[in-house]
Write a protein that binds this DNA or RNA. Structure first.
Lengths: 212, 212
DNA sequence: TGCAAATGTGAGGATTGCTCATGTTTTGAA
DNA sequence: TTCAAAACATGAGCAATCCTCACATTTGCA
């Protein structure tokens, strides 16, 4: 009943019950995550069975629960890795944008990369599809989106110094979230329509970002 | 093992295992849906237990499964009612839009109504939150969104007869989906920021709808 | 009235997330 | 080196839950 891990606020955020401190256990945790990733790619996270994860990782079910408090925590851990990776990429792409044309270029490329990732990575697709239903994942996605929107806000403040800062923040956050929604929509229809939708989103977003 | 209900395509769409034909059973099905609705409002559809639905509806668990093939089917049935209701409302609001100003007016009102519904109706909020995870619900939402986007497309074709029809269809569908995403985003942040996001969405959407 | 179809019931089968008592390995201080 | 404490590993089994099915009851109708 006692919690050793700190519980943030009242919502129970998924977190390792115990962080692996030895080399051996660190390797085993990696194997667990790899097994989970493979199973999600094959059947989706809903159909992923904890017993199967353990078996494929070559560990016992008990070991699995030694490091992950529950099933969602495994998915969450994978999701966290994706967000950390992509943040660096996004930050770099937007860092040296100097004018409107540069923003258009960088933004378009970012959207393409994101769209391509969703098309190619079944795990990513699965994880962020369930986002709405899972409280912890929704939380993670919102935080990630806010962080990414901040990079965009910084660019906007440079390009449009006269505009109201709060309005720019709202615009950046909205545009970013619309982008994620647009990509999720695009991959759930056929490829041709998906491409059209992504292009339409780009135009719409850029029009908004460069307005006024 | 035998299916009496027709199975559309290969994906198993949730549908009543047997349609109630007698007055008595129709009333009981209503009670089941009412009970489910109440439980979803209280705890969310994930925490809703089939046994509890049956108990609250005053029927046995077996009767529940006589008319609903599985748990998701109950949620789906509730969702279908919401979409049917809202379609009529949307169709009416957009039917007699004659000019750009009229579109701006009608569109803004529709968004407000939708936003208000999500703020006030916990059941609706819950159902459409899980949309991404559940195949059948995702299907229903896409079909609904397509239907609603068609009303919007009709207006656009009237206002911009020179534009490419396919482009207008893509724009309408995208704008509509972005609206649903924007509202879902808005209700998951605090009220003040939510209001700002919805207003920003309206501006962005109208700019796109009336562009060129 | 009588019979077939529709409806109603709830104990229990089957699956699955997760616990816990117990055993093994690693660490680090004396 | 020694050895106790901490970390790690195990898997049988508990508990929760969805759903089935054999059997009982009610309804519609010829």
């Amino acid at each position: 009943m006692e919690d050793t891990a700190p519980v943030s606020s009242q919502e129970q955020i998924a977190s390792p019950r115990r962080a692996p401190s030895q080399q051996r256990s660190r390797e085993r945790v990696e194997r667990m995550l790899a097994a989970a990733s493979a199973l999600i790619a094959e059947q989706g996270s809903d159909a992923m069975r904890m017993g199967e994860v353990a078996q494929r990782a070559g560990v016992s079910i008990g070991s699995l629960y030694q490091f992950f408090p529950d099933k969602r925590a495994i998915v969450w851990a994978l999701a966290e890795r994706y967000t950390a990776e992509s943040q660096a990429c996004i930050s770099a792409a937007l860092a040296d944008v100097g004018d409107a044309e540069g923003l258009g270029q960088a933004f378009s490329e970012l959207v393409d990369i994101y769209y391509g990732l969703f098309l190619a990575e079944p795990v990513m697709r699965d994880i962020w599809s369930g986002t709405q239903a899972d409280k912890a994942l929704r939380q993670l996605e919102l935080a990630d989106s806010r962080a990414n929107a901040e990079f965009l806000t910084a660019v906007l403040k440079r390009l449009r110094p006269a505009a109201d800062p709060t309005a720019l923040e709202t615009t950046a956050f909205l545009v970013w979230q619309m982008g994620e929604a647009a990509v999720r929509l695009a991959i759930s229809v056929d490829r041709q329509e998906g491409d059209r939708l992504v292009e339409a989103y780009k135009r719409m977003a850029l029009r908004e970002l460069l307005a006024e």
